[in-house]
Design a protein around this nucleic acid. Structure first.
Lengths: 264, 264
DNA sequence: ATTGAAGCTTAATCTATATCAACTATTCAC
DNA sequence: GTGAATAGTTGATATAGATTAAGCTTCAAT
């Protein structure tokens, strides 16, 4: 199993990012313009509108709230807040994390443009995680009650939202396998390849990107310490598979990275 | 976080088990009778019919297929088979596992009566795992296309199925946290408490039950080796927290088991 | 009832990764 | 722009759990 094809199935709603070239050193996700409509949104092909016709998109558009942008570190919601909406990332990125009794947190997910946040709250009516912006970011807020109502009216939307949730379930199970049997190097390679394909989805470079999260975040997500993540990245660089400079990363040899995983 | 309250939200369809006392040594899940209807099913209170009225239950009933029982080791489906249906466990138990390139498998989930199997296939139209019976078991098969169609007609059913999927997502994220930060003892304690509350859901004893899976299965699920699982169980027994004899297990001190987890 | 295979346990040893520690580089707030 | 805080790196050491190995137990098939 590789993470590299996770998320092939549609995932979001109403995005707005610049599908730019791997220009200078790395990419930049830009305008947090909140005046777009789903119909005109650059992300609509990989998002909830995917299977909808013009009139349906218009109906969806009507329930979407385009909030002000979030600053780095700002929270979308906190663990055990009442569940009211799911969010589609329009620009920037977010992390979800779970705080345990003793106060230490573990990152449970990262979210890039075109991905849906908050589905863990659907069953219990409370969010199971906190979610915070990793950089200046914007989202579309989709009140869940209204999404349910509209899904009832639009079978395409219902179908697609079932698919989004199913995709999340399949992805979480892949992570289960990753955490229960991969070495630190395999986890890291899989993580980088996963990011690569997620950036590809939104028309960004598959080989050059900025990591929006800290090494500590990556470690918490992968079940490793910061030190191990740092060492593995250094080692991968030494082997010529990647080139790392702070948050900038370039994947130099994707095939070999895949090779690391497929031996496990 | 503890696993002990995972699965509070409804999960299944059309069950048939004996809600028996912790009689002799352990419980026994019994008849694989396939003539029940959802309306008369003992599990209907924690299953898809939960929020449906009589007529709605009847409609649901009409799309459910009650297959012949599965023998131990028999497969419900195999990894990458075409996705056609989800399954509700009526009696017995199942495990899902993912086979990686090199042929070694990892268990991704266990399923007890009243739980839904196969949602990982919804997005990609292929099952991501194989699923096999751990003992003589029976299921209700729910063809997904028909479930979708009916969900469209019955808002209650749509709502409830969203909840079931949301619950699965929340549960998978808890396992993510467990695997990325718990010790072997914490994982094992959490696993036992999780089983306990799942047995409670179906009116079986919370403190005495039979493990339907091998130590090896538990290890694959928790990211540990058989040897470690065995050692931890022995250690918990020595501390007086559990009593283990082969597949029979008794939780002697649930509070202390919880204590093991809540320090993490 | 007998036997072989599968499941389980226990012990000794090894190793991947955590932990501890010290240092450097970046970022952010003033 | 400066200093404090945060993030990242590298090295030395410790350790939880893997691996290896061997024997024991249970179960299912004949």
């Amino acid at each position: 199993m590789t993470n590299s094809e996770i998320g092939a199935n549609g995932q979001t709603l109403s995005g707005d990012i610049i599908p730019l070239r791997p220009s200078s050193a790395a990419q930049k996700i830009c305008p947090h313009n909140s005046t777009v409509s789903c119909a005109s949104c650059r992300l609509n092909e990989l998002c909830l509108p995917i299977a909808l016709n013009k009139s349906e998109i218009h109906q969806l558009d009507a329930i979407v709230e385009r909030n002000r942008p979030y600053k780095k570190g700002e929270h979308l919601y906190r663990q055990s807040d009442e569940f009211k909406a799911v969010y589609a990332v329009r620009s920037g990125s977010f992390k979800s994390y779970f705080l345990s009794n003793n106060g230490q947190g573990r990152v449970t997910g990262f979210f890039l443009p075109g991905e849906i946040i908050g589905m863990d709250g659907i069953a219990s009516h409370r969010y199971a995680n906190s979610t915070a912006a990793l950089e200046h970011s914007s989202v579309c807020e989709i009140p869940f009650t209204q999404l349910e109502r509209l899904s009832h009216e639009l079978p395409n939307l219902q179908h697609h939202f079932f698919a989004i949730m199913g995709n999340e379930i399949a992805k979480d199970q892949q992570i289960h396998t990753l955490l229960s049997s991969y070495t630190a190097e395999e986890r890291t390679a899989s993580f980088l390849l996963g990011l690569s394909s997620r950036y590809t989805r939104v028309s960004l470079s598959p080989t050059r990107f900025l990591l929006p999260m800290t090494r500590g975040d990556i470690g918490e997500y992968l079940g490793l310490t910061v030190e191990t993540v740092s060492r593995i990245l250094t080692a991968l660089q030494r082997k010529g598979l990647v080139s790392v400079s702070n948050r900038e990363i370039e994947l130099l040899d994707i095939e070999s990275l895949r090779g690391i995983i497929s031996t496990s």
